[in-house]
């Protein structure tokens, strides 16, 4: 009896751990998949005719695109929570703004305007490879904030695994950096600031969202987060751009909504993004922000694989080395005893 009880307990913790890592892995797969439609969109009108030096227009187009993207993501989240029967809990959660859902609003600011914009700045002023590499550091930021704020346990194994995964990511993207960094570029510092913004933004998002998920459901939480993102762009940023500049916001909006190709890519990107983020949030409550974000970092590998599947171009040889490192790092983390992560924080009991 006692033996089977202990075994049942062990199985229980192991199942929880496995689900946590599975959700985190789905985050990485779907995030990688998102890059294909997410990038393809830039090769369609109206984006393709925006001159690369026309920063105002590029940022305006990005803002409009991010808003439409968030609206479509929310639609898929409503379908998801509708099927799970969680829409009423969404209502109960989002109305408690002052004490609970404000954290989701803050998470949307960290992950949306700060991280996405930072990432675009890094891409635009330094280059896409630099942007990809700085983003790799977001789990470090997330783990540190979660550690300092609500004492999430960062075990030696988790930290080691995270370091190996980041190294793997750097091996995949690093060599591309040499051709990209141009120290004579006057505005490069804007790109560096953007890179830091993206690492801090995404890292902080996980820690902030987890603060609200202490007392609310992750599926509901992600729907709250995107509801706030829509409001932020829709009633603040876009109207401000419209009123304060002469950038053609309405034209951009109409052009995007009436372009079948843009909308096809938008829908595909939004499906990937919606369920990527759902998996992301679900993993935090089972394995913690640090581990969830570190495994999420495998998106770098999946992005290369998905691009390879669609373009049929093989990646460089060092991709294999990066792949070995990231997989090794994941296993270092995964092989931690399940009982260790049955409680994720050092708090007063």
């Amino acid at each position: 009896m006692s033996l089977s009880l202990d075994k049942a307990l062990h199985n229980h913790f192991q199942r929880s751990q496995r689900w946590g890592f599975t959700w985190a892995l789905w985050t990485a797969v779907l995030w990688g998949a998102w890059y294909v439609p997410g990038t393809a969109m830039w090769y369609e009108e109206p984006f393709v005719s925006i001159h690369s030096g026309d920063h105002g227009m590029r940022l305006a187009a990005t803002a409009v695109m991010t808003w439409i993207h968030a609206v479509v993501v929310l639609l898929f989240l409503v379908i998801w929570n509708g099927m799970l029967g969680k829409l009423r809990d969404y209502g109960r959660t989002i109305v408690r703004f002052r004490r609970i859902s404000k954290w989701y609003a803050l998470a949307s600011l960290c992950g949306g305007p700060m991280a996405i914009f930072g990432s675009y700045m890094a891409m635009g002023y330094v280059g896409p490879v630099f942007a990809a590499i700085t983003s790799l550091f977001y789990p470090v930021v997330g783990a540190i904030i979660a550690r300092l704020w609500y004492h999430e346990k960062i075990s030696g194994r988790a930290a080691l695994g995270m370091a190996i995964i980041i190294m793997g990511g750097m091996v995949i993207y690093g060599p591309g950096l040499f051709g990209e960094i141009d120290i004579s570029e006057n505005y490069a510092w804007l790109g560096y600031v953007g890179g830091i913004m993206s690492a801090i933004g995404w890292g902080a998002e996980g820690a902030v969202a987890s603060r609200a998920m202490d007392v609310t459901d992750p599926d509901v939480g992600i729907q709250c987060r995107f509801s706030f993102e829509i409001l932020f762009w829709g009633i603040l940023v876009l109207p401000m751009i419209y009123l304060l500049t002469d950038l053609p916001i309405i034209t951009l909006l109409v052009d995007m909504l009436t372009s079948p190709m843009v909308m096809i890519w938008m829908v595909l990107a939004s499906i990937a993004h919606a369920y990527c983020y759902t998996s992301f949030y679900k993993s935090f409550s089972l394995i913690g922000v640090g581990r969830g974000e570190a495994i999420g970092n495998l998106y770098g590998v999946f992005a290369v694989l998905f691009v390879m599947a669609f373009t049929l171009e093989l990646p460089e040889w060092y991709f294999v080395l990066g792949l070995i490192l990231t997989v090794t790092g994941s296993f270092v983390m995964y092989r931690e005893p399940a009982e260790n992560i049955s409680t994720l924080r050092e708090v007063k009991s």
Binding site: P218, L286, S342, L344
Partner: peptide, 19 residues
Amino acid sequence: IALDELASAGLINRIGYRL
């Protein structure tokens, strides 16, 4: 699952278990 999440986050403690 919700109870598991609450226990992982340290808001509630498991003080006993049985089959």
